[in-house]
Structures are given as structure tokens and as C-alpha cells.
């Protein structure tokens, strides 16, 4: 979608899938010169510490590659789990839904 990549996670994430996503995504960011990544996890209702950390890693990696990452549509149960696990993911930007996430990315691109 324009300068942005939209990743929708539809299935339960397992560890290998998370690693594959991380690799594919970094690859695509470099190849397509992507400026922003939206990860939609609204269909995800189970999350563990590994997935949480991988999300954080993806955000840090894309920042190094000059792309903003916004995680959108996190379920309340997932948010509670991550916080209880001590993973408040301070480096990640978040939004309620894809639309808001897009707005956020556009804003930050305009600014810098």
C-alpha cells in the first residue's frame, strides 16, 4: 500500500512463523524501500513472551532500516498478557485499527 507494508496476522503465531515473518519483513523493507510497516494483530488472541519480543525486535530492525512500525488492533487479553509478562514494548508505536495506524505513519513521514 503505497510506501507502506501491511502485514495481517491471521493464524496463531508460533515461534518459527514469527522468525519467518521477521526475515521476510526485513527483506521486503530493503527491497521495496518501505517507509512504514503496519502489523495488524487483531486476529491474534494468544501471545507468549517470544512473540512479544519478536514484535519488539521487528520494530527495532525496521527503525534501523528507516521504516516506522505500528502495531494495530491488539486485543485486550493480549495487551494484559504482554504487560503481565513485563513486555510493555516501549519501542513500538501502536494504534487502535489500521486506519488510525495509517494516519500515524503518514504523520510521522510528513514530519521527518
Amino acid at each position: 500500500m503505497g510506501d507502506f507494508l501491511l502485514v495481517t496476522i491471521q493464524v496463531d503465531m508460533h515461534d518459527r512463523l514469527a522468525i519467518t515473518l521477521q526475515e521476510d519483513l526485513t527483506e521486503r523493507i530493503v527491497n521495496d524501500r518501505t517507509r512504514g510497516v503496519l502489523i495488524d494483530i487483531s486476529a491474534l488472541d494468544i501471545v507468549d513472551s517470544f512473540i512479544g519480543r519478536t514484535l519488539g525486535n521487528i520494530a527495532s530492525m525496521s527503525r534501523i532500516l528507516d521504516a516506522e512500525t505500528v502495531v494495530v488492533g491488539m486485543q485486550p487479553s493480549v495487551a494484559i498478557t504482554l504487560v503481565e509478562l513485563g513486555l510493555s514494548l516501549p519501542g513500538i508505536r501502536t494504534a487502535l485499527n489500521v486506519d488510525r495506524g495509517m494516519d500515524l505513519l503518514r504523520e510521522s513521514l510528513e514530519r521527518g
Binding site: 491488539m74 495487551a79 504487560v83 510493555s88 501502536t94
Partner: peptide
């Protein structure tokens, strides 16, 4: 603080 962090994760 946890509530605030969880809300932030959801984008609020």
C-alpha cells in the same frame, strides 16, 4: 502503570 501500559499497547 500496568493498565496504562496495556492501553498503550492497544493504541490508546
Amino acid at each position: 502503570l500496568k493498565t496504562v501500559a496495556a492501553a498503550r499497547l492497544m493504541g490508546a
